[in-house]
Computed example of a mutant assay.
Amino acid sequence: MIARFNFYPLCPRPDVVLGVKQHADSSAITILLQDKEVEGLQVLKDDQWFRVPVVPYGLLINVGDQVEIMSNGTFKSPVHRVLTNAERERNTLAIFIIPDVAVGIGPVEKLINEERPRAYKDIKNYVELFFQSYQQGKRPIEAAKISQELH
Rank of each mutant, 00 (worst) to 15 (best):
A143D: 14
V38T: 13
T84L: 05
Y57T: 15
A119N: 07
V82K: 05
V103L: 09
L83C: 10
L60I: 14
E89W: 10
A3W: 02
D47V: 03
S133N: 09
P12Y: 02
G73Y: 01
L83R: 07
P56I: 00
K124D: 02
R4A: 13
N113T: 00
V101G: 11
F7C: 11
P107H: 06
V103I: 15
G19P: 00
A24T: 11
E109Y: 00
P78W: 06
V127C: 02
A119W: 01
D47R: 12
K121N: 07
E142G: 06
V16N: 05
V55H: 11
Y126G: 14
L59A: 08
E128K: 15
L32R: 01
I105H: 06
N113I: 02
H80D: 02
V16K: 15
P140K: 05
D47C: 14
Q132M: 05
P117I: 08
V67W: 05
I112M: 00
Y8M: 12
V17C: 04
Q148N: 07
P117C: 05
P53Y: 03
R81E: 11
P140D: 15
I29V: 13
R88H: 12
Q22S: 10
L18G: 01
I98N: 09
A94T: 12
G58C: 08
N125R: 01
V63W: 05
V55A: 10
F7P: 00
V108T: 11
K138C: 09
I97E: 08
V54M: 12
H151Y: 15
H80S: 09
R90Y: 02
N91Y: 15
S77R: 03
A86R: 13
I2F: 11
M1V: 11
E149V: 08
V38C: 08
V55R: 07
Q66M: 10
R51F: 11
Y126A: 15
A144Y: 02
K124E: 10
P107Y: 07
T30I: 07
R90G: 01
L150N: 10
T92D: 08
E114M: 09
N91T: 14
K45V: 09
G73M: 04
K21G: 14
G104V: 01
V55E: 04
E114F: 01
L60T: 11
I61C: 10
T30V: 04
E142D: 15
T84D: 09
L41H: 07
I123C: 10
Y134C: 03
V55T: 11
E89G: 06
Q48M: 05
V103T: 15
D122K: 08
L150C: 07
